[in-house]
């Protein structure tokens, strides 16, 4: 993990924290509105009520990832100004936005879990760490990895994230048994393990370590 000094060490965590909080606050309002709209327009279609907030949520995340990608250069410039360093040629200028975007999703999941805790004061909320958080993280990993080095795969990755999220929500709202919940949690964690290989290839290997090879 990077050991940045001074104000530069605070810059990225502050941006991540603010972005995650902002995303959660926006999505709370959007989800309410979209759910009410779907219930009004299609009252006899519970699938629409279930899928509309998921689509909005994943679209908002995609917008956030693109914003992070666009802000990579200004953010790096700000970071360099905050921490000039002795020699500019020793600086690590590899893209950092994928990790920051994924951390933002983790912060968003944290706020969501805390909101659930305030609404349903129970120790069972801790189970969301194994159910909803892996769903958010897996979907974000797929989309970010696609945006990082395989732009043509962004649409399939987005569909995967939305479908994964929708399936988890539908399963959770059907009052599943404990075995189903455990199996779903294991599946989500396994998906993260598999997607970490994609993350390694697309983000770490091609995006960070040998970014210069893309020029050829």
């Amino acid at each position: 993990m990077s050991a940045r000094k001074g104000s530069a060490a605070v810059l990225e965590p502050a941006v991540v924290l603010a972005s995650g909080c902002f995303l959660w606050a926006i999505l709370v309002q959007l989800d309410r509105g979209v759910t009410a709209l779907a219930g009004t327009l299609a009252p006899n279609l519970p699938f629409a009520t279930l899928s509309a907030p998921v689509a909005v949520e994943e679209a908002a995340k995609l917008c956030l990832f693109i914003a992070f990608m666009i802000a990579e250069r200004p953010l790096a410039g700000l970071r360099l100004r905050l921490d000039p360093g002795p020699r500019s040629d020793e600086r690590d200028v590899s893209p950092r936005w994928p990790g920051l975007a994924l951390a933002t999703i983790a912060v968003f999941g944290t706020f969501e879990n805390l909101a659930y805790l305030s609404a349903f004061s129970s120790a069972g909320i801790v189970g969301r760490l194994f159910w909803s958080l892996p769903v958010h993280v897996a979907g974000a990993m797929a989309v970010i990895a696609a945006l990082s080095s395989r732009r043509s795969l962004v649409a399939p990755a987005f569909l995967f994230a939305a479908g994964w999220h929708l399936g988890a929500n539908a399963l959770a709202s059907s009052s599943p048994s404990a075995a189903v919940l455990i199996a779903g949690s294991v599946l989500s964690v396994a998906a993260i393990v598999v997607l970490s290989r994609l993350w390694f290839r697309n983000v770490v290997l091609e995006g960070i370590v040998h970014a210069t090879a893309r020029k050829h």
């Binding site: 990225e12 690590d92 590899s94 994928p98 879990n113 805790l117 120790a123 993280v137 770490v204």
Partner: peptide
Amino acid sequence: PRDWQIASFLIAGSLLPALLFWPFDRIIFL
């Protein structure tokens, strides 16, 4: 109250992915 303890567990657990995939420095690999 007990909820404060649960909240701390939620925060600590939720931040694991953020710490795992926080931007890697190039020098770690090179």
